Amino acid sequence: MNRTMIAARLHALGTPMSLDTIPIPKPRPTDVLVKVMACGIVPNMANVINNWPSWFPHQPLPRFPAVFGLDPVGIVEEVGEAVINTRPGDRVYVSPLRSCGSCQACRAGQRSHCRYFTLNGYFSTSRDGQRIFDLYPYGGFSQYMTAPEYAIVDIPNNLSFEQAGRFGYLGTSYGALKNAGAGPGQVALIDGITGTLGVAATMLGLAMGLSQILGTGRDERLLARIKALAPERIQVMKLGHGSTGEWAKSLTGGEGADFAISALGAKAPASTMLDSMKGVRRGGKVVNVGGVAEDLPIDVKWLMDEQIQLIGSNWFTTAQGQEMAEMVRTGTLDLSYLEHRTFPLSRVNEAISGLKDRDGGFSNYVVLPQVVDAA
């Protein structure tokens, strides 16, 4: 007799998710079955889902009814017969990155370069992404889910399920920092430092030994909170109070930052990013993880003359996820700054609809699938 679980499923755009009782899936030989204890929430996910098909028609959502939920964390319940290292009882973060596993990029360990690159529980970057969704149809807004063993990150006991539910954003920032070659003694410029990706990049940059972090944002109160994290190593400026590029160079003896992380977000004007790019030193890097609202008109001769590298960074590897878990285990990375607000599965529609009391990148909103109704 099949066991059942409760999952929040979206049956059509513009409608709320419903709580459905469906069978608990059986893991295939190379898969694991995870009992989902928490799932991080994409801010304003309801608006994103409903508008995604018109915004990005080349990046499809899964076929409905669909189980969303990008950042699942839980306990391994069962493993397939070909799974070697993962065991029942393991505490894990399940990276949503899925790929075909057999192309040149996948064989080289670069799964995000695969043409089938799909974020399980969210969207695919491929028009053929439904093939991946068919293999892994369960996101984190369900009580159980299957995942390939390659997606599993072991998490330590001193990392709570709620904290691990932020690993998607932390990992996106960590992947950007790795692409920038971040390390001890360097100076970073983080545009959008008060947002989810910006705060994550700041905490990770401090843990990675950056000597100085220069950050911009629009909320003065949040900028003050960011600076208070490490007053001797963090300098902040409110956007609109002068040129970001000139400010960054004035604080670095005219040299500029070693790299810039652009985490502004999809509503920011391109001019803001162009300004911050001018705050990077000759031979530096600019890594984008947020996007801007319009095409970026770049002076390619300046890019050539200054030997600036412009890098698009999307998600992170499972190995990088494991590195972050190890940083937490050893105390190198402190996630106590996260302020959790949790929701039972029955309130998932409220949780994804864009909460009004967000405190920038300090707030952490999480759905608890094992808690169906509020107490």
Rank of each mutant, 00 (worst) to 15 (best):
Q104F: 12
C100D: 15
R107N: 14
E81D: 15
S112T: 15
V199C: 04
G168T: 08
P62T: 05
P137C: 12
P60Y: 13
C103E: 13
G175F: 04
S112C: 12
V76C: 05
V199L: 11
I132A: 12
F64Y: 07
C103N: 13
F68A: 00
A188D: 00
G139S: 11
I152A: 08
G101C: 09
V73M: 03
Y150E: 15
L197R: 02
S160F: 05
V94P: 02
I155M: 11
G74R: 01
D90E: 13
C103M: 14
G109K: 09
M145T: 03
T194G: 08
Q186I: 01
L177P: 03
F133D: 05
G168V: 01
C106A: 14
D154S: 14
P65W: 02
I75P: 01
Y150D: 15
Y93R: 08
G192C: 05
Q104D: 14
Q186N: 03
T172L: 10
P62R: 01
G185Q: 00
P137V: 11
T118N: 04
V76A: 05
Y122F: 15
W55I: 00
N85Y: 10
C106L: 13
Y136I: 08
L159M: 15
F117W: 10
E81P: 01
G198W: 07
F133T: 03
V187A: 00
S160V: 07
S95H: 13
P137H: 07
G140Q: 08
Q186L: 12
Y136R: 00
R111N: 14
F117L: 13
Y169R: 10
R111H: 14
Q110E: 15
S173V: 08
F161S: 05
L61H: 04
Q186R: 10
S126V: 04
Q186C: 04
Y169M: 13
A164P: 05
A188Y: 09
G168Y: 08
H58P: 00
N85D: 15
Q59F: 09
G139H: 03
G165I: 05
T172S: 14
A82W: 07
P137W: 04
V76W: 02
A200N: 06
D191G: 13
S102R: 09
M145C: 06
R63P: 00
D128M: 11
Q110F: 14
R98F: 13
M203H: 11
G171I: 07
Y136D: 06
D154Y: 08
S124L: 09
L177F: 04
G183P: 01
A108Q: 14
P60H: 12
Y169W: 08
H113E: 15
F123Q: 09
G69Q: 03
L135I: 06
L177A: 07
G121V: 08
D71M: 04
E162I: 10
L177M: 10
R131N: 12
L189P: 01
P137E: 09
R87V: 13
G175C: 08
T125P: 00
K178E: 11
A105G: 06
A66S: 12
F167K: 02
V153D: 06
A82V: 03
G183M: 01
E149R: 12
Q163D: 14
D134S: 11
A66Q: 04
S142V: 10
A182P: 02
G69L: 04
Y122G: 03
I152Q: 04
G181S: 09
A201C: 05
E81A: 12
H113Y: 12
G74W: 01
N85A: 13
G171M: 11
